[in-house]
Design a protein around this nucleic acid. Structure first.
Lengths: 333, 333
DNA sequence: TTGTAAGCGTTATCAA
DNA sequence: TTGATAACGCTTACAA
């Protein structure tokens, strides 16, 4: 920067002002500086600039399972807008217990980010306090975090619509495939969707049968396992609600391999759901990442930002994996 | 840091030495410092430390399509090992032309990373020169970049084995679904696999028919489109090799919806391929991310590092989407 | 083993 | 509009 200043015949302060586009620089000086910088192919050191200004221009993004479709979409969506505004995105993948403990043990985000994005994770009170102690705005995707902004869908309403779809088709014995609620890594979304399942059945005057609710690890294998177990029941369900499309895929797989027929509805509208003809509840995931990043930007620039709440719509997408209860019952019974 | 030094009754230099685990600190002093730091819940400012030391402790990762399964796996794999060693990962998603131009126009990586990871992208000579000008080690995943380290599979051999599998089943009219070779964003992998397809057919004494090679955008829709077009040919193929499993999924979808029967083999062994019974060539993607990150670490620590080359094995995974040519020909013809 | 002090490359305050 | 100059919070010779 000294060199540029010398070449342009100004002080380094003026170079700094010019390069940051501050208003109080004369046009003539500006040109000279820009030319000098270009001819030396000079770029400011982001690190020095961060140290001096105290702003990191970085957002920390915390996800439980970076390799899963849902989180990939969120991160890609957020990255696109952050990058556009010259902000860095620092990814923390803390799904397994060890990583999570390390994360909260040393809190590597300290003095390192201007804002935090939390994706579909529920924290204990001490963990939340740790996060708060960073002193930067927080935005959550997929669920509420006290004191944080939030971009999400109405999980209860969405899951309810799924169950009501099944009820509308005449199903009375409805199972659910849910993820295992490891207490150290409790995904809030799982809780909400299961609650909607239970409440909606109860509201419809149906009994809640514990044996119809499967708790399995997330993913295809989990879904397959769950459906296989459901099929061994003396009185198996005629329809099943899966917490996510990936679980539903596994369920479909089990059905195909056993030749049985059970209606299945998923949740997300994964890119492969159309291919598998899976009825599901669609949410726009990439877009939630985009919106969350926008909110973060506001939080970082507006001085008196207060947490915003954005509710995204969901849609029931009807495909061939669900049908009226009578149909298959008649043909297979 | 001053505060910690005062509290521990030492100089800030000693605090620095202690906190970085340098050897030349007496045990007693070390304890005092650590205790002081803990009681003040002090952590070093990574930014200041980077400025002073000149090392960024950051790796830039450049991918074309962050939201795709393959790249998600690579990034997750790399993240896991980088994080473990306290290195930051800065993601650059430059798949669309605008993002790519912006990236090479301003080269935001300058003065910002200690190493670069490039995933399955081919660059023009000027672009390669830009990357080199960063003056940091480069590692590529999925293909060679001159002067860079490399973790990849043997695409030609793997694709050849796929074609040979089809030939072994008696297929003589074999199509290929390949991605559109946009010259601004040429994926090297596409080229290699197409070449293997052509060479293997030729070596088997078969004619190469241009109408059997489809170039489509990547993804389900592309695959579906391609297969539909192949099916409209006067003499359609009896088997098809898809450049990736996602393209193959689309092809399977087209077949299912049209009720036609064509053997399909994919490439990658995507997590959903088993579900769809897709015969494919398996490669371990997450692991390649892990290995590449390890190579990067070596490149950053060893002073006289020279580019390494790691070749990962692939496996032909036989499932139900491919069958001897006679079977369906007889039943449908 | 420990302390002193000079950087690292910016930004920001204050005068001019 | 511009220029000195003091932070920013560390690391690292060099000296002790």
């Amino acid at each position: 920067m000294e060199d540029v200043a010398r070449l342009a015949g100004v002080s380094s302060a003026t170079v700094s002002r010019t390069l940051r586009g501050l208003p109080n620089v004369s046009d003539e000086t500006r040109d000279r500086v820009l030319q000098a910088a270009a001819s030396l192919s000079y770029v400011v050191s982001p690190i020095a600039s961060r140290l001096a200004s105290g702003r990191t221009h970085t957002v920390g993004v915390i996800v439980p399972y970076a390799a899963r479709w849902f989180f990939g979409q969120i991160v890609a969506g957020a990255e696109s807008v952050l990058r556009e505004h010259g902000l860095d995105l620092l990814l923390y993948n803390i799904g397994d217990v060890a990583a999570r403990q390390r994360f909260f043990g040393q809190l590597p985000l300290r003095r390192r980010v201007d804002a935090v994005l939390v994706v579909a994770m529920q924290f204990t009170d001490p963990e939340t306090a740790d996060l708060r102690s960073l002193g930067v705005p927080i935005v959550a995707v997929g669920h509420d975090v006290p004191g944080a902004g939030c971009v999400r869908i109405d999980d209860v309403a969405a899951a309810t619509s799924a169950i009501q779809h099944l009820l509308g088709l005449g199903h009375r014995r409805i199972g659910m495939i849910s993820t295992y609620a490891d207490q150290a890594m409790f995904l809030p979304v799982a809780h909400e969707r299961r609650r909607a399942y239970l409440d909606t059945l109860t509201a419809a005057g149906l009994p809640v049968c514990d044996e119809l609710v499967m708790s399995v690890p997330h993913g295809l294998d989990g879904g397959e396992q769950a459906m296989r177990r459901l099929l061994t029941l003396p009185d198996p369900p005629t329809a099943v609600f899966a917490e996510s499309d990936e679980l539903a895929f596994g369920a479909l797989s089990a059905l195909r391999r056993t030749g049985r027929h059970v209606s299945v509805i998923g949740f997300d509208d994964h890119e492969l759901s159309a291919l598998l003809d899976l009825t599901t509840v669609r949410q726009r995931v990439f877009e939630q990442g985009v919106l969350a990043a926008g909110m973060l930007r506001r939080a970082m620039t507006v001085s008196d930002w207060t947490p915003e709440e954005l509710l995204m719509p969901t849609t029931l997408v009807l495909r061939a994996s669900t049908w009226p209860v009578a149909v298959r019952t008649a043909s297979t019974g």
